[in-house]
Computed example of a mutant assay.
Amino acid sequence: MRRMVAQSLRRRAMPAALLPAFLLPALAALPARGHAADAPLFAPPAPPLVTSGPLTFAPLVRLVVPAVVNIAVTQDADDPHKRQPVPPGVKGTPFERRFRDRMRSRGEEMLGAGSGFIVDPSGVIVTNNHVVGEADRITVSLSDGTEFPAKLLGSDDLTDIAVIRIQAPHPLPFVTWGDSRQINVGDWIMAAGNPFGLGSSVTAGIVSARGRDIGASPFDDFLQLDAPINPGNSGGPSFNLSGQVVALNTAIVSPTGGSVGIGFGIPSEIVAPIVAELRRTGHIDRGWLGVTLADGDTHDGVRITDIDRGGPAQQAHLHTGDIVLTVGDEPMDSSRTLIRTIAAEHPGSTVQVKIRRHGAVLTVAVVVAHRPEGMDD
């Protein structure tokens, strides 16, 4: 009966707009149901964490795009063993049709297209090794359409970095390196390059993550970017808002072949010193310890599970089961960290390796050897 009365009362309740005026102030003073009278339902507005963003990228585009180049690579068409199909990302684009017609008349076959950027006014260009590594000929197109043949100065397969050079009759526009260590997740970036053969294209987005390992090599340490990156963007730069290069665009994850907002760039902190070494010597010499490592079975350090016969570790009397704690002053928290740290040492140099063996902590001097060719871990 009480339930029926209550329902009847609810049905007969007048809307607030129809209540007598003298009741409205009293109703307004009542607390909201389920909340204390002094506890507001919503917090007052707080100052925004981000107070401003770029209203336009146009000034940045004008500053840096003249130093971004398109790269086309070709192979001799009369050699069937070297002929390769055009990458899917370039098929069907105006670039492919125009370039095929021109290359066919020269007895050449297009292998692919990519991007690069000039880092020295004399014509030194940075790109990906997978863009130029198999080419018989490399052609670079500047943003104004001028074309030059290019020469490979050096490349590094493990980090997918290459340096090429063109000879221009005048100094060229160039860009400088920014410090990728200062980049935070959420920072703006702008990518530039040659997606699908459409030269001088730019896209913008943010840094989605740092330190990504995508299984490309033991030296993976990518910035994940959500600026659209597509086939043909490989080898192009990503810029901070100061117009400095903070990443070398290298790879995408996509089920369709186009951008789904997951792209990867090699941070400038890795690229810049490798480019300097490639310009100096044409190759990269890396250190090698001669051990097999295991992660996950110790809270600190990395366990040695096997030692190469005659390698530096054996000569320094390291043992299977030793746990590497530090190399020099740097803690070793994973096998990848240890591989990178040793690889950064010049072959022939001596490093102090702190280990734990049967509960005792020891320091062993190890003479780093030259990393054998063809090793991928």
Rank of each mutant, 00 (worst) to 15 (best):
F117A: 10
L289P: 08
V253F: 12
I166K: 01
G359C: 03
G359T: 02
G186M: 01
V126D: 00
R309H: 14
E96A: 15
G89Q: 10
T256N: 00
H130D: 09
G321W: 02
L223D: 06
P171Q: 08
G197C: 01
F95M: 12
P15D: 13
G154Y: 02
V291Q: 06
M332Q: 15
F95Y: 08
P237Y: 06
A209Y: 11
Q7W: 12
S349A: 13
K151T: 13
F57P: 05
S349P: 04
M14P: 02
P171T: 04
F174K: 10
R309D: 14
L19V: 08
I252H: 12
L325K: 02
P267E: 09
R309K: 14
M190L: 07
P94M: 05
V163Y: 07
G243E: 08
A168K: 10
G123S: 00
P171G: 00
A191R: 00
A135Q: 01
A67L: 11
T176H: 10
Q352F: 04
R357C: 01
T326L: 06
D101F: 04
V73F: 06
D120H: 13
I229D: 08
G310I: 12
A37T: 00
V302A: 07
G287Y: 10
G89F: 05
G310C: 12
R62H: 12
S52L: 11
I164P: 01
A272P: 05
V275Q: 01
P66A: 09
A46P: 15
P85I: 07
K354H: 04
S208C: 05
R10K: 14
S115T: 09
V69G: 06
